[in-house]
Every structure is written in structure tokens, then in C-alpha cells.
Design a protein around this nucleic acid. Sequence first.
RNA 1: GUGCCUGUAGCAUAGCUGGCCUAAUGCGUCGGGUUGUGGUUCCGAAGAUCGCGAGUUCGAAUCUCGUCAGGCACCCCA
Length: 435
Amino acid sequence: MTLSTQPYKGARDFYPEDKRIQKYMFGVMRNVAERFGYEEYDAPILEPLEIFTAKTSDEIVGEQTYSFEDRGGRKVVIRPEMTPSVSRMVAGRRQELTYPLRWYSIPNLWRYERPQRGRLREHWQLNVDLFGIDGIEAEHEILLVADGIMQALGATKDMYTIKLNSRKLMNGLMRDYLQLDEAQAHKLSRLIDRMHKTDHAEFVDQVGAIFTPNQHEKGLDKALLSLLKTSNWDEVSLDASSSEALKKIKQLINMLETSGITNVVFDPTIMRGFDYYTDVVFEVFDNNPKNNRSMFGGGRYDGLVGLFGVKPVPTIGFGMGDVTLQNFLEDHGLIPEPNTETDIYAVLIGDVYDRAQNAISSLRGLGINVTVDSTGRKPEKQIRVALKKQVNYVLFIGESELNDGRFTLKNLYSGEEARYDIQKIASIVKDYKKT
RNA sequence: GUGCCUGUAGCAUAGCUGGCCUAAUGCGUCGGGUUGUGGUUCCGAAGAUCGCGAGUUCGAAUCUCGUCAGGCACCCCA
């Protein structure tokens, strides 16, 4: 029986050309996160089942995790998301950490799903979290980071939209304004989440089915539908907590606009699947109709750290998946030209492999990345390889150079060619690298 | 988990109303065009049990069924 060369369903091999794209995306993420003072952490890929059962969505834990019993009979899960892990870590050092805490990580996550565009079984996800700030400044900052990454990747404001909502607002709306019980409210959130994908007439029917005849008589379902349509919530008589949540959303939008983020809107249909969100939630959408799903999102989850038996810490964060992000970059032509790591491709002429070593290791010692062509093929073929790999400089090493102690450096793009000593070669290549 | 679509060299495709198929073309890979320098071009080579299994037939890449794999949508979500 022959072995399959395919990677496991829904998981990817990263050949160098793929890895390069990933390195680029992760590099931008790290740069921006660190520019805001976020520190990188990591955690095990395997976690005890319980930390997910509490607050991740039932469907994900019940049907979409890789879970099994270890040899000691412990129920474990390959993490489907990072938030419970980071909450566990913060709770573990609740007392000794200095707040506010700014942490980020780029973990790989697994979910047992049927793969399709924008969704695989294994993906990587940047997680950026800010612990210990109660005020709106936290929301503001976390969105600046998210937007900063998009900007650093070359996205312009017309390419994506940041949509904001508040769980607190929606909960209050459903409980006090629409007078729904918990089961009704839960059903309705799911429904609203899917609103844009559902046929409107059907949506109206489904909403109607949730309300009791009594509630229907009061016109509550109609009130909801018109609210979802207009997004004009000014006349709604909300209770204190909800109207505060609504005010916060408006204030946040103002602050973001002042910071130059103008592509941000209030959208009451943004719900987010996880159960742990407590207040502001947001999702970033690709404006390209081809990708009508949300690219990434996050929100405030003030209660999660407290689940580990310590005093709660107010927290806000977001997760940005590599698969959807890469789709976005590809569709908008934002993937940069691949860049080789090789600075110099050493072309050996004649049987000089041994005697060329000195020069090559000197260059490497000076911080130059040198690839040696040891195939013994003729120079013409060696140059072709360098061209194919998009290396800028070729260094010829032959009898003549070895006798001279100086080597022929050729810039493959300009065609310039001259002999220099090792020091000079290193400085020329370094100058080039800077540009 | 449900529905729809697709499987031909490493990749992209042609062939698919059954026989001129001993499966073609392009890209890629390797070698060569007299031995120290360019992507073009020219010549040549390697590389495919036509996803797998069964059936129909004198004859199957081509038709039928099964199976596996992949893609897309739903669900859910990044």
C-alpha cells in the first residue's frame, strides 16, 4: 500500500512559498502588537475539557473539538480557541501580575469541521487581549491594534468595515424591552446572528415564532424588526444599563473616528458565537461581496478569569484567523512579492568547493546569508537557479578569484559586476539589504 | 452532520456521443547546444497502473454502480 502525500484533512502543509506568506502576516501582527506594548505568551495545545465547557459555545465543544481521554483517564481537548487558556494563565497569577496586562499570541487551533473556503480544521489565530481596564479606553485601544494590523498589511478603509454591538445592550433589549425569557432570548440572538443570510420573509416568520401570542399582541416583534432595520435607537425607552451600553457604543465610535478610523459602524446584528462575551463585541467584515463573512472579531469578556476561582479581571480582546485574513489579502492583491532570505548565491567554477569555504564562511560571519551551489553544474545553470530563486547577488568563485583573494560579485538585476574583497562585498550587500 | 459538484504525469489542462489512446499539450524538473556568466530560444530525456473497486461490452480515460478523496454551500465559525 502506498502512503498518501496529502496532509490531514483540513490541515495544511506549509511549503516554503506558503510559509513565507505566513511569516509575513505573523511578522506584521507581531510588529503592530508590540508597537502597542503587547507581550507574547503561549500555552499548551492540549487543555482539560472543563475549561471550554463553561463558556465556549455548546456546539463547538460538543461537536467540533478533537477530544479524547488520555492514558490516565483525563478528558482533554486540542484547543479550539485560545481565550480560555489565556484566562487560565492570568487567573493562575492573578495576584502577582501587574495590570493592565497586554498579551498576545499566535496559537494554532483545531476544530473538527468540514473544510471549505475560509474554514479549515487547523488554523492559526492572533489573539490580542488587554486585561485590567474597565473603561472605554480598552475598547478604543484594542480596536486601534486591530485596525493598525489591517493598515500595516496595506488594507485601505474602503476594503473593510468594523461593526460594533454590545451584548449588554442586546440582553437588556431582549429582557426588558421585548420582555423575553432566557430561552427566547437565546434563540433570538442566534436568529439575529444569521439575519443577513436569511431570506427576509423567512426571518420575519422565524422571529414571530419566538414571541408568545401575548407578546405578539403588544407588537414587540414588530418593534424589534424595525429596530434592526433602521439602527435608529434613539427613541427606544431602554433601562438604565442598556442605554448606558448604547451610549458607550456611540462614544466609542466617536473616539475611533477621532483616531482616524472612519469605517466603523453600529450594527445590532453582530452577536458573536461565544457565550463569554459580556459587553462590547465587534466584527470586521471584508467589503468584497465575494467574502461576505466576517473576517475576525472580538469583544469584552469580563467574567472568564473569575471562573478560575479568583477575583474577576475586566478583559477585552480579539482573534484574527490566518485563513480568512489570507483570503482577504489575496482578493485585494495585498500579498507582497516573495522575498528570498538568500543574499548571495555562490557560483563555483571548477573544482573549488573546498578552497571556497574560507571566503564563504567569512561572509556568513559578517551576517550575510550565502547559498552555495555545490552541484558542479556549469555556471550558466547555476545562475539560472539564482535567478529562479530571485537572489539579487551572485558571487563567482573560481581559480582566478582564489588566486587573487578577491571575488567577482554580480548584481543580477543591474548586471553590474566587479571584483572586491570579502569586507567590501559584505558592505555592498548590506547596503542593498537596507533598501 | 445535510445537499450539490469534481477526480487524467509534480502542476494546469485536452480527450469523455466507447475502438484511430501504445493517452496529448503547456508549465515545471533533468541533460545537451565544445568546457568562466542570464531569464529568451533550440534539441533531447525522465515522468500517468486515466483516484480505487466492481459491472456492462468483443473492446472502457470515456457508460453504470459502489467506494475513497477534494471543492462549494448549509450548520457553526476565524
